[in-house]
Design a protein around this nucleic acid. Sequence first.
DNA 1: TCCAATGTACCGTCCAGACGGTATAGTAAA
DNA 2: TTTACTATACCGTCTGGACGGTACATTGGA
Lengths: 182, 182
Amino acid sequence: MSVTRTKIVDAAMVIVRDQGVSRLTLDEAAKRAGMSKGGVLYHFKSKDELVRGMVQRMLEQCDALLQNHYAAEPEGAYRWSRALVRMAFDPEGPPDHKIGGALLAAVTVNPDLVAPIQAAYDSWTARAVSDSPDPLRAKLVCMAMDGYYFQRLMGISLFNERQRDQMKEFVLNMIDAGKSGE
Amino acid sequence: MSVTRTKIVDAAMVIVRDQGVSRLTLDEAAKRAGMSKGGVLYHFKSKDELVRGMVQRMLEQCDALLQNHYAAEPEGAYRWSRALVRMAFDPEGPPDHKIGGALLAAVTVNPDLVAPIQAAYDSWTARAVSDSPDPLRAKLVCMAMDGYYFQRLMGISLFNERQRDQMKEFVLNMIDAGKSGE
DNA sequence: TCCAATGTACCGTCCAGACGGTATAGTAAA
DNA sequence: TTTACTATACCGTCTGGACGGTACATTGGA
């Protein structure tokens, strides 16, 4: 991915976050990226392609975060689940980072573009379940993290930093409680 | 709310569910409702108004469901939390009913229209927390329910009926586990 | 009882602007 | 000269919305 492409995708992300999905147009993205629409269309043949780029960018970042957090977690049960929670509460994760807008953009521009996200999501869930003695507990954790993402994306009921950290600890504790058979 | 208005809102909900938010136009809503765009604009002065109608409709239905489920739950701790879970898994609730599209419509058409949803959501959360010995547990439940809604709305990782019921039971059990102060 | 006035519900047409996308010319570096 | 990239001009389509008109029901006074 060239520097310019990255810059354009960044601009698109910022637009979604700051102005809402409805304002995501090729013109606006170009303006934000400091270039003309022609320039944008040189790098992305269509708006769909641009959104695809956003999605790809988001998934790459998520995967990287997940990998990092997984590596940092101690071995044992629920390791993936814990990594997932860390990613969800990471400032660089989808809920709190501009990359989160990619999903919203995909859904509104063309629902087909959600497919890669679904695939990634399924694999994350599968991983979380794979090393969990209690699959339902792992799934619940996934759902809760989605809920957190959802709230941020839709702008409903925002935690402050303190509540955020409390919730993170609570979820991690809940996971640990599942280790020794509830 | 007149019969015709209801019909139009219904049509809009169906469009969002079946064709995606991007297909929600006044023309399309009119066609689905069996009338002309002029007719739609007679009942809703603008597209924003229409979406406002969708949001109102959704909130009314949610409140009614919540009320019913609350009434049916036994007294005691976590009564509101349990009612909330029942609503989330109710076929008439936002995740599994066409009314769920209202939030998506609001976010994409005009983020300001989400305000009423945020207000309602906050009050639900507050209620759930109010009768919960462990507020964080209640909040986690809310988040998980949001996650379920989110998954359905975005079309990622769908439960089948069996998994759905399993998860419902699991969450309800988790709530009960919190009663005797873990 | 007749009829004019008023209000309600809805239709069909039209328009300005926005948007995605194309075509093409230009520029600067390698 | 080619390649990578940018800018401008333009087109067709879609969409929200304005508007004038129509059919019908209601009302209220002569």
